[in-house]
Nucleic acid binder design. Structure first.
Lengths: 172, 172
DNA sequence: TTGACGCCCATAATGTCCCATGATAGCCCA
DNA sequence: TGGGCTATCATGGGACATTATGGGCGTCAA
């Protein structure tokens, strides 16, 4: 599908995962998936939650068809029987879970998933646009601070460069 | 972005956020979004209010599709699974909120947003063209004074330089 | 049996919707 | 040109829906 509008978003609804939420796990190990995320997954036509441990950091990537499509295209980019393709398929598909979402909008993370992210009593769900991540709250705070610092530095550098290139009245 | 509008602006309507308004939060924490801003958001085809804490100052940036597009294009510049993309998404989308606008044109700022801007009892909405900002009134006054001073100085410098380069009023 | 997991209901807190009010600004018409 | 009439706006508050969370029971499999 194209970039142009599709299903008219309902009130305040978005076609991307945004914001972040801190949710607690109950005694049975269940966590509520934020309502806004659930709404997006439903609109995306995905029943359940596609989830896997991120390759290089202690966090879980999750989402619906949009995420699945991205992974698919990544793997499709490698030649059919290449070593790389096998490895990517194995590490992405092989460790993925399709979690069931119960009537109240909760999921139960597997032990492997929780262990990878270091999640125990609570989890932070963070929207990244086409997908979202699930972090151990403390680690999320640290990561957010670091990421924000990087973006800030980038913005300043960008701003400085613009001024250098267009000294006078560079109007948009 | 193009200058040409899409939907013909009605009488006195603008295709940019301009001017500033001081609005109070009610007991439930709601604030009215200035009517002229709402009209622009509606014309922009965005239902709700996209809002996030500014990177380097105690202010909130807000807007509709135009603002969203700006962020999206920044992130789209990084390759799908790159570290940079993940961090930019985390910081930009992760701290964003899509606030719902109620039937009376009000929004409820989240605690995180209010904390970042230092907003408690009132807020100043300031038009910045394709987006607008939400300030704590006192801070806005101070910032405005400072900015005005800077612009004044810059204008004088610019005027002097213009005279040197293009002696006679070369206007667009 | 003993869990692990599915499905159901209960509840407190929050968020959303709807209607009411006073103030303002714009408009029409004499 | 002035004077009121009305649509719009900012604001207040109550009623109701949704959310996150807790816990009860069966079922199916070790």
């Amino acid at each position: 599908m194209g970039l142009a509008g599709k299903t008219p978003p309902a009130t305040g609804e978005m076609d991307r995962f945004v914001s972040h939420y801190l949710l607690r796990l109950d005694a049975k190990g269940r966590v509520s998936v934020p309502a806004s995320f659930r709404a997006l997954l439903a609109r995306d036509g995905f029943d359940g939650l596609y989830c896997y441990p991120a390759l290089d950091r202690p966090v879980l990537d999750a989402g619906g068809n949009a995420l699945l499509a991205e992974i698919q295209s990544l793997i499709a980019g490698f030649s059919p029987f290449s070593e790389a393709r096998e490895q990517f398929s194995l590490s992405l598909y092989g460790t993925s879970e399709t979690l069931k979402i119960d009537g109240e909008g909760r999921v139960t993370l597997t032990e492997a998933l929780k262990a990878h992210a270091g999640i125990a009593a609570a989890a932070t769900f963070v929207g990244l646009g086409h997908k979202f991540q699930i972090w151990e709250p403390g680690r999320f705070r640290a990561e957010l601070a670091e990421a924000t610092e990087k973006v800030r530095a980038f913005k300043q550098e960008l701003g400085a460069r613009m001024v250098a290139v267009k000294p006078l009245g560079a109007r948009e």
